[in-house]
Amino acid sequence: MKNLLNCLLLLSISLGFTQSRFDNVEIKSEKLSDNVYVLFGAGGNIGISVGDDGVFVIDDQFAPLSNKILAEIKKLSDKPLQFLVNTHWHGDHTGGNENMAKAGATIIAHDNVKVRLQNPRRDGSNNPKEALPVITFNDKLNITINGEPIAVFHVANAHTDGDALLYFTESNVLHTGDTYFKGRYPYIDLNSGGSVNGYIEAAKRGLMVIDENTKIIPGHGTVSNKEEYQSFLKMLETIKTNISKAIAEGKTEDEVKADSSLTKQYDDLGYGSGFINSERIRTTFYKSLKGE
Rank of each mutant, 00 (worst) to 15 (best):
E130R: 02
E130Q: 12
A131Q: 14
A131M: 13
L132N: 01
L132C: 11
L132A: 06
L132T: 03
P133L: 04
V134A: 12
V134F: 06
V134K: 13
I135W: 03
N138R: 14
N138H: 15
D139C: 03
K140V: 01
L141P: 09
N142D: 06
I145E: 14
N146T: 08
N146A: 08
P149Q: 07
P149N: 06
P149R: 06
I150D: 08
A151G: 03
V152G: 06
V152L: 11
V152F: 03
F153R: 15
F153I: 04
V155I: 03
V155P: 09
V155H: 08
N157G: 08
N157P: 09
A158N: 08
A158F: 01
H159R: 13
T160A: 10
D161F: 11
D161Y: 08
D161N: 15
G162E: 07
G162S: 13
D163Q: 02
L165E: 14
Y167M: 01
T169P: 03
T169F: 05
E170R: 11
E170G: 00
E170F: 02
V173I: 04
L174P: 11
L174F: 08
T176N: 01
D178T: 07
T179A: 04
T179M: 05
F181G: 00
K182L: 02
G183Q: 10
R184G: 14
Y185L: 05
Y185H: 13
P186W: 05
P186F: 01
P186V: 00
Y187W: 06
D189A: 14
D189M: 10
D189T: 07
L190G: 11
N191G: 15
N191D: 15
G193Q: 05
G194T: 06
S195R: 14
S195D: 11
V196P: 02
V196W: 03
V196E: 06
N197E: 14
N197C: 09
G198P: 12
